[in-house]
Design a protein around this nucleic acid. Sequence first.
RNA 1: GUCUGCGUAGUUCAGCAGGAUAGAACGUCACCCUCCUAAGGUGAAUGUCGGCGGUUCGAAUCCGCCCGCGGACACCA
Length: 564
Amino acid sequence: MLKNYFIEVVKEALNKAISDGKMGQMSSYCGTFVCEKPKNEKFGDFSVNVSSLAREAKMAPPQIAQNIKEYIKEDDFNVNCVQGFINFDVKENILSDIVKDVLKNKKNYAKTENKNPKNINLEYVSANPTGPFHIGHGRWAAVGSALANVLKYNGDNVFQEFYINDAGNQINKLGKSLEIRVRQQKGEDIVLPEDSYPGEYLIDCAKRYIEEGSTEDYALYAENDMLRQQKELLKNFGVNFDLFFHETELYKNNEVQGCVDKLEKLGKLYKKDGAIWFKSSDYGDEQDRVIKKADGTNTYLTADIAYHQNKLKRGFDTLINIWGADHHGYIKRIEASIEALGHDPKSLEVLLGQLVNIVQNGETMRMGKRKKMVTLGDLIDEVGVDATRYWMLIRSIDTALDFDIDLAKSKTDQNPVFYVQYAHARCCSIIRKATEKSVDTLDNNKIIPPSIEKAEFEEYLKNPNFARLVKSYDENSYKSIKLLLLKIEEFKSVIENAARLRAPYLLCKYAQELGASLHHFYNYTRVITSDKEETKARMTLVYVTKIAMELVLELIGVSAPEKM
RNA sequence: GUCUGCGUAGUUCAGCAGGAUAGAACGUCACCCUCCUAAGGUGAAUGUCGGCGGUUCGAAUCCGCCCGCGGACACCA
């Protein structure tokens, strides 16, 4: 990518300067440079800051920059120095190379070499099978699947997994709740006990149970019913898991007891108050944790320890879990178990996400447990899959998300989803307009022949006139083309950052910037003109933009409409 | 009390592996369609980067203390 290219240019020049003794007391440099886009465009397109060499060289930053510059051959770019910055201004060659790159590699153009690909297990959502998803699950579903897309695109191996807690006593509770609902449906006068699941979804479930004349165990029936609904919703939401892992599997294979025995053997367990405790405080946890209750049953943690061992045994070197912020105290004890059982605790990466609030009519509804729950299904029915996914992804997961239903539904420029999709539709529209016959409604419905035949344009794409692509436009137009192409190229570093920082919201940010660049270009540069060669060249620019736009939207998981 | 996230423009938020005049969107105001989607673009105004100290040639960014808001601190899952 261009950023790395300029860093290499600077490094090479620096080495030459050092061997010529032009770098003061510096004899070698093994640090790292950062290349960034200057905030102010007058400084050029890319900028490398060399001030950090000042101390070692014992020279003033401006002098350092100047000396290094002497060794940079200006060819495809201009160089200028301001203070401790070496600034680069790219020329046409680099711009047409970007077009070449996209035409050749299509949607793979933003892939860069991943020198250290990881074998990642990504676990997210993992809702209990005791009811419908709530809004919060939607955030993890959107973030998790987009993150999986980005990591895969970045060259990592990603396995997406959903953990089902189907062994605890909440399943028994679920079964009992269903049983009551069934008896109520059959006309029995019976009240739902305090500790039941009160949701109305179990009434529907009970109706199905009766309708099918089922005699299945209530708990099993209810669980399968819930799972079926959850899986269907995930599918509609564009989320595809490689595995739904059942907690009960761990018991069937005796893996839970296996872990307990192993910890026992390692001397990491002790008895107190009739319970068995894990010495997690040996590994940085603030206190020890119970793994076998006084009544002899396991805690949730016990199975979870076994689950993480299971994942590690399957050969993943990186376990990424997306958890709600309310689970934060849980991290240390899982890490402790991983370390105690002989693995690197650093192989676990927990992404803690803040919660989602629903905003409607300008009013924030906290998703408290007592308030009426808004389900993810309701939300999707209300605002659609595209808008839901986009809005769930738009903010860094470190910050609480206000999901404004009215805004997400609005089909106006206030809504970034539409802004971004519109940009894609606009690309399609321009190409369509140029290559299809159209009708002039103002002039007796006269048929207007296409400016360029489809086949002719496709032929052109195989061998475009690169010199023509970015040349001979007026200044504003040239600038708009340059910014657009550099923005398209920037996607490479966005992918890398989003993958490294586990931050798929950067995709939304980028999509909006790319859209803005396209609209800016559109205003300054007319694509379809009477000059055929010019039209084909500019259509090519629109075409590569469309590819970039399709790619971002695909990674985000939002559709790319051809028409709006 | 301990742990954790947040505090940046009127609003919602970027920026935080230290670097040039702190950015975007929305809102406000002023412009731009005889012609490819105005669901768009251009420009203007708007800031004690929560506060105080420290490290540094340089701090919104790193460190310490304090203030405010949310969340977590089970032999629940």
